[in-house]
Design a binder for these strands. Structure first.
Lengths: 110, 110
DNA sequence: GCTATATTTGCGCAAATACGCAAATATAGG
DNA sequence: CCTATATTTGCGTATTTGCGCAAATATAGC
């Protein structure tokens, strides 16, 4: 496995793995439409500066897109991309590749 | 969304979102069979104590199972469970539920 | 019991991280 | 230009986190 890809994936998971950031993602997911930061920062009751920083992290990892509209930033979820990456990892762990089949039942080979 | 579940999911993602811990998961995934900690700690070239702690975190989050065998601990991946949780999140983000369809194309409603 | 191996735990340290506040910046709208 | 609103940035702080080393613990095998 590519070391860089592994690091990139770890960064994505880390970005999603913080409670308030995950809350932002959930919020964007549930409300179904792009939101500005003021609106988003309600959902995790933190200072707007904190929300801004969290959203920046999410943007850096490609989780959200930013669209400038006047003095606002409109954030939208990168639904398909993020979902695809998560599924890719799930597939790898699941062992759709060869290595799982010889294992799943071999754990009792003591 | 349940706050506790959200926190649990965040914890899982955080556990996976650290480079060396993700390396351990990859290693367990690729070698296809359970491993002890000595063997695993090679893959991320850290002290065995560090590997032990990382594996403990992964075990707490249900990523790996521990089986005691003599003085060794044999770690195995909880493949299906972890993959299922990742897919669940992917599905949620993807928006298999109602809210996505009105959105995907509405992001251009400026 | 003694020794060797595997793992865990205590400790300290350095770096990263999340946070809030206040100031700075950007821009809409008068 | 002035004001109001939205966002970012600088700064200080408290907490968390990853790490290595050494000591402690557990167990296999003699």
């Amino acid at each position: 496995m590519d070391i860089t890809r592994q690091q990139t994936l770890a960064d994505l998971l880390k970005a999603l793995g913080e409670y308030n950031r995950l809350s932002l993602v959930y919020r964007l997911c549930e409300c179904g439409q792009p939101q500005n930061a003021m609106c988003l920062c309600d959902c995790c009751s933190v200072d707007s500066s904190v929300a801004s920083r969290h959203l920046k992290v999410l943007a850096q990892e490609g989780v959200v897109n930013i669209e400038r509209r006047g003095r606002e930033r409109i954030y939208s979820l990168n639904r398909s991309e993020v979902a695809a990456k998560l599924r890719e990892l799930a597939d790898f762990i699941d062992g759709d590749s060869e290595q799982s089949m010889q294992t799943e039942r071999m754990t009792s080979n003591v």
